[in-house]
Design a protein around this nucleic acid. Structure first.
Length: 560
RNA sequence: CGGGGCGUGGCGCAGCCUGGCAGCGCGCCUGCUUUGGGAGCAGGAGGUCCCGGGUUCGAAUCCCGGCGCCCCGACCA
C-alpha cells in the first residue's frame, strides 16, 4: 500500500542551508533521510527502501560465492580489542557498563569474528570459511561530512575469509573480486576497482572499489586498462627538456628565491629541470632527503611505502645542521641519505647549494651526490601508462578488499591443525562495502537540475503513478485501477493520489527520481493514451491504454 | 587538532552594528474558487530567538562561559 497521501515522504523545496554535497541536499530534499546529529542520520521510509535494495544485491552475490551471513554485536567487550592493539585507536567509541567493565562500540569486526572462529575451527577440514554480516558500525570520526558519505554511525557489509594458507586466501580474495564486480555492476553505478594502499596494517594486497563523484574524498588515476588510487598510482612522467650537466656544479646567486617557480624563472630553465628537496624524518632511520623533479610533488603514502617506515616532514631546525638552510637545500654535500625519485632522468639539474641565497646548476645525480632510487612522486594528469594518458578523478570509496594474512589470527590466537597434525595460523582476508555510500554515489552520479534519477536497481520505487485530479472523477477511478494492475506486474509503485496540483506532483516525482513516471489525467482518457516520462533524460513517451500496465513493465525493463 | 562560519516557527532567511511590539517568503490549518508544471482570495495556528550567567528600567541584540551544527585543512587501521 504505497499511496503518497498516506506515506511519510517529507519533501522540501529548499535544501538545508548547511548542505554542500549534491547527494546531501537531494537526499534530504527528496525525503529520504533526516539528520539527528553530526554524522548521525535517520533513514525515512523511502530512503530505507533504497538502502535495502543495495543490501539485497550484496546478499545475493555474497551468498552466490558461498559466504554465510551472521550477525555480531555492536557492543563489544574491550578485551579482544586490547589483544589486537586496536583499543588505542582514537576513533573507537569506548564506554563502561554499570560494573565499570570497559566496553567498545565496534567500528568493524575482525577481532570478534576471529574470536569465534578461533573457538570453533579445529581442523583443516573446517576451512575455508567466508562469513559476513550487514551491521551497524560506530566510529568517532574527527569530521563527519557530506550527508551520509562520512558518518559516525553507518551500516557496513563486512565479510571475513578464513583459509589454511596463502593460496587459499588468494582463492577467497578472487571470489570476492568476482562477487564485488557483480555487485557494483548490478547497482548501476559507474565504478572502478583500483589498486590501493595496504596501510600500516601490513597485509599483502588490497583493492578499493571507487565510484567517481564530485563529493568524493579520494582521487583515482585512470587510464585505459589502468586504475589506481593516487596514493599508490604509478605512471611514466611527462618529458622535460633538460640542460646537459656541467663539468662540475656551478654556484649561482639566487637571493631570496626559495621556490622552484622563482628559481626556474630566474635561471631560464623549466621547473622540471630543478630538483625539489623534501627532507623527512623516517621512523628508525632519521633524516632522509627526498628529491623529486621541481614540477612534481612528493606522495607521502608512496614515500612511506618506499621507505618502509612512517615519516613526517623535517623541520628547518632538524635539517639545518646536516643539510642546509631552508629554501636553499640540496643533495650535494648533504649529510643525509638521498632518495631520488624515479622520474628524475639523466641531465644537468638545478639544486639548492646548501648556503643562503645560492643554488647550483649543472648538477648530475650520481656524480655529484649518491642516491637510492624510489618511486615517490604523485602521479600528474597527462602522465602515461602503457603510452595512454592518465586522468585523475575524484571518487568515493564504496568498497574495499584486503588480504589481512595472520594479523588477527595471531593476535587472537586462531589456529587449526593441518593434515600432519601441526598447528597453523589461519590466514584471513576482510572485505567491506558501504551501502549508504553506494546510495549517495548513485545520487551524485545521476542527479540533474530536477533531482535524483536513480538507476533502476536502486530506486525506492520502480514507477511513480501521478493522477491529475482532485476528488472523485473518472481519471481517479482509472488511476486507482491502473495502480492495482501495475502492482500486479510485480512493480513497486508509488501512487501520488494526494489532493495536490499537477506542478507539485511532477516536481516531487522528479525530485524522488523513480525511473518512470506515469501520468493519468483528463487528457489520458480523452486521447486514449497514457503518458510516461523516463526520468533519466526526462524523455516523454505514450503508451496505449489497452494493456498499459504490461507495457509500462516492459518499458521499465529496458531502462538502465 | 588548526582555520573559518552559523544557531531566530517545519524549511530558507531578515532583525543584532546603534538595546525598546519578534518579522518576511515558502510550508501548515479552515473556507470558497482553481485543476496537465510548485494556483488565487479571505481568515487562522505555530516561537524556551541554542543554553547558563552578567550588564541594564528593559537583552534576539551588549559582555562572559558553555553546547550544537556546517565548511576548509590535518586525520580517516
Amino acid at each position: 500500500m504505497t499511496r503518497l497521501s498516506a506515506y511519510l515522504l517529507p519533501t522540501e523545496k529548499q535544501a538545508p542551508a548547511d548542505a554542500e554535497a549534491v547527494s546531501h541536499k537531494l537526499m534530504v530534499r527528496a525525503g529520504l533521510i533526516r539528520q539527528l546529529g553530526a554524522g548521525l542520520w535517520t533513514y525515512l521510509p523511502a530512503g530505507w527502501r533504497v538502502h535495502r535494495k543495495v543490501e539485497q544485491i550484496i546478499r545475493e552475490e555474497l551468498d552466490a560465492i558461498g559466504a554465510q551471513e551472521l550477525l555480531m554485536p555492536v557492543l563489544n567487550p574491550a578485551d579482544p580489542w586490547r589483544r589486537s592493539g586496536r583499543i588505542e585507536i582514537d576513533e573507537i567509541f569506548k564506554l563502561e557498563d554499570r560494573k565499570g567493565t570497559e566496553m567498545v562500540l565496534a567500528m568493524t569486526h575482525e577481532e570478534i569474528v576471529t574470536t569465534h572462529v578461533a573457538q570453533v575451527v579445529r581442523s583443516y577440514r573446517d576451512l575455508p570459511q567466508i562469513l559476513y554480516q550487514i551491521q551497524v558500525k560506530e566510529r568517532d570520526e574527527p569530521r563527519p561530512r557530506a550527508g551520509v558519505l562520512r558518518t559516525r554511525e553507518f551500516i557496513m557489509k563486512d565479510s571475513y575469509s578464513f583459509d589454511r594458507d596463502e593460496a587459499g586466501l588468494e582463492e577467497s580474495y578472487a571470489k570476492h573480486i568476482a562477487a564485488y564486480d557483480r555487485i557494483f555492476e548490478r547497482t548501476g553505478l559507474e565504478w572502478y576497482r583500483v589498486e590501493s594502499d595496504v596501510g600500516m596494517m601490513g597485509g599483502s594486497g588490497a583493492h578499493e572499489y571507487m565510484a567517481p563523484c564530485a563529493a568524493g574524498e579520494d582521487e583515482v588515476a585512470l587510464a585505459p586498462g589502468y586504475a589506481a588510487n593516487v596514493e599508490v598510482a604509478s605512471a611514466d612522467p611527462q618529458a622535460v627538456e633538460l640542460p646537459a650537466p656541467l663539468p662540475e656544479p656551478e654556484e649561482v646567486h639566487t637571493p631570496g628565491l626559495t621556490t622552484v617557480e622563482d628559481v626556474a624563472r630566474r635561471l631560464g630553465v623549466p621547473q622540471g629541470a630543478v630538483l625539489k628537496a623534501y627532507p623527512v624524518i623516517a621512523e628508525g632511520r632519521g633524516l632522509v632527503l627526498v628529491m623529486v623533479r621541481g614540477d612534481h610533488r612528493v606522495n607521502e603514502v608512496k614515500l612511506r611505502n618506499a621507505l618502509g617506515a612512517q615519516c613526517r616532514p623535517a623541520t628547518p631546525d632538524e635539517f639545518a645542521q646536516k643539510i642546509g638552510p631552508a629554501g636553499f637545500i640540496g643533495p650535494v654535500g648533504a649529510n643525509a641519505p638521498v632518495v631520488l625519485d624515479d622520474a628524475v632522468a639523466d641531465g644537468g639539474y638545478v639544486t639548492g647549494a646548501n648556503r643562503p641565497d645560492f643554488h647550483l646548476r649543472g648538477v648530475e645525480p650520481g656524480r655529484d651526490f649518491p642516491f637510492e632510487r624510489a618511486d615517490v612522486r604523485a602521479v600528474e594528469p597527462g602522465d602515461t601508462v602503457g603510452g595512454e594518458p592518465v586522468r585523475i578523478e575524484k571518487a568515493i570509496e564504496v568498497g574495499n578488499i584486503f588480504k589481512l594474512g595472520t594479523r588477527y589470527s595471531s593476535a587472537i590466537g586462531a589456529h587449526y591443525l593441518d593434515e600432519s597434525g601441526r598447528q597453523q595460523l589461519i590466514v584471513m582476508g576482510c572485505y567491506g562495502i558501504g551501502p549508504a555510500r553506494i546510495v549517495a554515489a548513485a545520487v551524485e552520479q545521476y542527479a540533474d537540475e530536477a533531482g535524483i534519477a536513480w538507476p533502476r536497481a536502486l530506486a525506492p520505487f520502480d514507477v511513480e503513478l501521478v493522477v491529475i485530479s482532485r476528488g472523485e472523477s473518472e481519471e481517479r477511478t482509472f488511476a486507482d485501477g491502473l495502480y492495482e494492475q501495475l502492482k500486479a506486474t510485480g512493480l513497486d509503485v508509488l501512487y501520488d493520489d494526494r489532493d495536490a496540483g499537477p506542478g507539485e506532483k511532477f516536481a516531487d516525482a522528479e525530485l524522488l527520481g523513480a525511473p518512470l513516471r506515469v501520468t493519468v489525467g483528463r487528457r489520458t482518457l480523452a486521447g486514449g493514451e497514457l503518458e510516461v516520462q523516463i526520468r533519466r533524460g526526462r524523455e516523454r513517451r505514450t503508451l496505449p491504454l489497452d494493456g498499459a500496465a504490461e507495457a509500462v513493465k516492459a518499458l521499465w525493463e529496458t531502462l538502465p
